[in-house]
């Protein structure tokens, strides 16, 4: 295809220069621009990109060079860069994951601290209540014991007073009987009957 296309383009491209520049080289003026063709380097055409004679060597070396480039890129260079990028990606993901884990841990620790704090507070409150209750119960008990003792003593005292009083009363009667008997005997000279005296005293006491 290039053999039929190539020369056709060369004719078009080289019409203005081919007439002006002989193949021997040197300089010539075409359209006011100095155009020089170095001797020996022009392969039948003065416009290098359309010079068909250079095509095969360009193509062969391009194929070899590009194949080499493709192999070097796909086998060595690109996997290397991909590896680096992947490693970084993994590392960042790992770091993020670890950071998340640590955050969860610290949150759990904070929660545990809160819980411990509130339980300690509750315990302290309980201890305080318990102590207060115990102390007040003790105070109450001792107060009751004291009151009971006092009431006991009071009642014994009262009983003693009452017995003393009855004893005294009994003594009073005896003394009165004796005194009345003595008085009567002193007055009349004869001792009255004790039963009569006792009855008279009792009657006097009742009055």
């Amino acid at each position: 295809m290039s053999e039929t296309l190539g020369p056709a383009i060369i004719v078009v491209a080289s019409t203005e220069t081919a007439q002006a520049t002989p193949h021997a080289g040197g300089a010539a003026v075409a359209d006011g621009v100095v155009i020089a063709v170095p001797p020996g380097e022009a392969h039948g055409s003065s416009f290098p990109p359309f010079d068909v004679t250079t095509f095969p060597s360009q193509l062969i070396w391009l194929v070899i060079a590009f194949a080499a480039l493709y192999l070097l890129m796909s086998r060595i260079a690109l996997p290397r860069i991909a590896n680096i990028l992947e490693e970084r990606h993994d590392r960042i993901a790992d770091d993020l994951e670890e950071a998340g884990k640590m955050r969860a841990e610290s949150e759990a620790a904070a929660k545990a601290y809160e819980a411990a704090l509130s339980s300690a507070r509750g315990k302290a409150h309980g201890i305080a209540t318990e102590t207060r209750d115990k102390l007040s119960a003790e105070a109450e008990a001792s107060r009751k014991a004291l009151e009971a003792g006092l009431a006991d003593k009071l009642s014994t005292a009262e009983a003693q007073i009452a017995s003393t009083k009855t004893a005294a009363m009994a003594n009073v009667r005896g003394i009165a009987v004796d005194a009345a008997g003595t008085i009567v005997s002193t007055l009349i000279g004869t001792a009255p009957a004790s039963q009569a005296v006792e009855a008279a005293v009792d009657q006097a006491i009742e009055n």
């Binding site: 392969h43 004679t53 060597s57 060079a65 590009f66 080499a68």
Partner: peptide, 19 residues
């Protein structure tokens, strides 16, 4: 016509440079 040309030299230069 086959030859190692300046064009070929630059092609290999580019490949080497890139690699």
């Amino acid at each position: 016509e086959l030859a190692f040309t300046n064009s070929a030299a630059f092609m290999f230069g580019i490949v080497a440079l890139v690699f």
